[in-house]
Amino acid sequence: MAADFKTAQPVEYYRRFLKEDVRPDGRELGEIRHTTLNIGSITTAEGSALVKLGNTTVICGIKAELCNPTAEEPKKGFVVPNVDLPPLCSPRFRPGPPSEQAQVVSQLMADIIENSGVVALEDLCIVEGKLCWVLYCDMMCLDYDGNVVDTCVISLLAALKNVLLPEVTVNEETGSPVTDVEKKLPLNIRKCPVATTFGVFDDHYLFTDPTNEEECLATGVLTVVTTEDNKICCMHKPGGTALSESRLQDCINRALTRAEEVRKLIDETINSVER
């Protein structure tokens, strides 16, 4: 009969768990789901990563193309993120143009890339004013069980660390680029941003890493993105229940510890992959 109670009164059902300081899936309020990482499985992409945060699965593929830099910024290349939430990942997404949520997450990714300086755009420039790299980072959610932002950030970071770009020189006579497929160099990753999302319920309870059901019931959401020198590079709180300063500080501290764990996991996985 628990399943009936859950469908009939989901809020009440959830409240009863939170009173005992535990959540329906058995986690504590500050516990984050098990994270697994699989790097470099898509060979057609320059860099790829598949991340599973509990059940939420996101795959990120990075393709590099050559293009001309803009006149305003002749020394900078481009990094273009795109998040796709297709109908196959959850029944709540319908076929059609990208939903509002997908566009918001894409924009958030673009902000994180710019603010954190994960890749210096000057590194992507080959010939000033003439030739540069553009990195298309396409993140696709395969299974949506809440907290897609954190998963996307981890997959993006892991895929960027996996990218190998061929060396490009410009042929002086013809002026056209010559790609040397034999020599491949990894990207210079300056900073490693990691995101942690929190949910607020009933103006009172604060929990990390919400699942899909918890996201639907939460009254507010907060995402904190930190880099390794204990700097906060992005905070995203789209309305919802108000939070006091002390709670905000708790969230930031939790985000900092979580970010360390994730960075270690990514480095371990990369080192274990034979190239």
């Binding site: 057609t44 109908p87 196959l88």
Partner: peptide
């Protein structure tokens, strides 16, 4: 049915 290819699935994006 809906068929879709990921942008990174082929040699050219």
């Amino acid at each position: 049915c809906q068929f879709s290819m990921a942008t990174f699935s082929t040699g050219e994006r």
